[in-house]
Each structure stands twice: as C-alpha cells, then as structure tokens.
Amino acid sequence: MERKYIARSARIAARQLGDEMMIMSAVDSKFFTLNPVAATVWLAADGQTPLGEIVTQRVCQEFEVSAEEALRDAETFVNDLSQHGILLVSDQPIATNAAGYVE
C-alpha cells in the first residue's frame, strides 16, 4: 500500500472548539470547520506519521469504525482539503517547523 503523509500549512490559524476544529486560512480567506473525525486527522498531521497509522492509531482507537472504511474516508478527506492549500499531502515524509506546520 502506498504510504501517504500529511502536514498542516503554516498559513493558517487553528483552534479547537469542543470536538471540532476551526481553521482560518490566509491562503484564500476561508473559514473552515472540521467535524470530530476530521479534527482527529488534522491534529495528527505532523508530516511524519503515515496516514495509515493515523487512521489505525488515532481514528480507529477513538471512533467505532473499521480500518478499511476509516482509511478510505480519510484519503478522500485529505485529498479534498489539500485542494484548499491548508493541508499538504505527499508520498514522502514532510519537514515541518517546531510547531508542526509546513512553512
């Protein structure tokens, strides 16, 4: 299986509100709201942990879902979000700054 790595752009401001994540993007001046499962993936996007591990170790531990379904949904989600420039997706580990964001 192809490994996929995800990392958050530094051109955002994000805050967690309850189980959801609020993200203000400086890329296109959009305000995003992520649901709890999406927020779990977002928070784990350190550029070093493969998406498959994020799904099995974070999503599947926290939510009632199979690894297959969760991975399929997560791949769709990260691909969609990457189109907005606030999440980077790569088949190689992604270098991030000390705060865990891509400059």
């Binding site: 959009k30 709201t33 649901n35 999406a38």
Partner: peptide, 25 residues
C-alpha cells in the same frame, strides 16, 4: 474508554469577506 460513534471526516467552509459583509461596505 468507549469509542465514539463514527462519522465520515468532513469539513465545511465559508468565505470570510461574505461573513464580514465598515471598510468592506
């Protein structure tokens, strides 16, 4: 320790300037 109900990871967004709409006016 109980796992929470699963929903597909989803997001929604809105244009900030539309929400703001005063310099904008």
């Amino acid at each position: 320790g109980a796992r929470k109900p699963y929903t597909k990871p989803e997001y929604r967004y809105e244009e900030v300037f539309e929400t703001m709409a005063c310099n904008f006016n």
